[in-house]
Design a protein around this nucleic acid. Structure first.
Lengths: 165, 165
DNA sequence: CCGTTTTCCATGAATTTTCATATTTTCATT
DNA sequence: AATGAAAATATGAAAATTCATGGAAAACGG
């Protein structure tokens, strides 16, 4: 569009349907699903589920997050997150309760093992992202990411105990 | 950006995390989740689950889709779709096997009741979409949608029997 | 400071989704 | 045609998610 980069549309080579083809929510969901799936193969090769990957990615570079925050970031309901984190603790990827000021909270953070896995996967994720964005060119890529951030900023996260996977 | 419309970023008022904040796959997933959730309240008020809504939205304006295609469109695995469609048939929203050339296939289409519900919800969905896109302005909105379509076109759907919710 | 309300998390039961696999039909070859 | 491989779906068992709820700590209001 700006230059020789992509932007001439025409939905996929595959399944389409009159209504959804122009429907933003559908396009977001499909794009999310397809882009993620490619990388999820690497994730699962590391022995993680997709939700577990989301958790360690959310914890990367953080000094600890609460269960509630992680549920938001990982797009699951709170009870799901509680159980996922318990599994991950058993596997030695995270530890719970690293000094929290509010004793209702469960503070979760990466163990050394978890951090190493997270760092490795995050690096690979960024390489994957580069490949995905390459056909758009630098400017369009920045535009896309900017608009997605705007969308997110304009729409508040789920109400407590609700989520919205 | 182009004009007075949104595009100055700064992630949400809420939960964020160093790595994911700039990660495309995460931004897509969050945006998808948040935008959809708002409308899903209306969907559930109509007595449909989110997956059921995706199915009737996918069937709107179509004269029938196979189970496999619907699974792609609805972002679920094929066995899930089979069961969802069976529930929907029991509720009188869809009918199965409207003359298919390949007798392995199960052709699914809307009943009158299903079509009425679909039309009503699709109309409301488009109004919701207008509201969501309004702050971006016409040109940026078109750009966003175009880039999402490009992303989708560049990334093929899941291999058979796999999906990638 | 005490009672009330709200927030945050854990847990058991129920539901949903997924995995593994069987069945039926089509396709390709010979 | 007949055989073997591939494709589309259904289904039971297993796993993951969600709902409903409960308990504990914090915040709030006299």
């Amino acid at each position: 569009m700006t230059d020789g980069t992509t932007t001439e549309n025409q939905i996929s080579t595959h399944a389409s349907s009159p209504f959804v083809d122009g429907y933003l929510a559908y396009l977001l969901a499909q794009a999310s699903s397809r882009i993620s799936r490619e990388f999820h193969r690497e994730v699962e090769a590391s022995g993680l589920s997709v939700t577990e990957w989301r958790v360690i990615a959310s914890l990367a570079g953080s000094d600890g997050e609460s269960i509630g925050t992680l549920a938001q970031l990982a797009l699951t309901k709170q009870p799901t997150l509680s159980k996922v984190v318990q599994r991950m603790e058993a596997e030695g990827l995270v530890e719970r309760n690293g000094a929290r000021r509010d004793r209702r909270q469960t503070l979760v953070r990466l163990t050394r093992k978890g951090r190493e896995l997270a760092d490795s996967l995050c690096a690979r994720a960024l390489r994957h992202q580069q490949a995905v964005l390459e056909p758009f060119g630098h400017d369009n890529a920045a535009l896309l990411i900017g608009m997605l951030k705007d969308l997110i900023a304009l729409h508040p996260p789920a109400a407590p105990a609700d989520d919205g996977v």
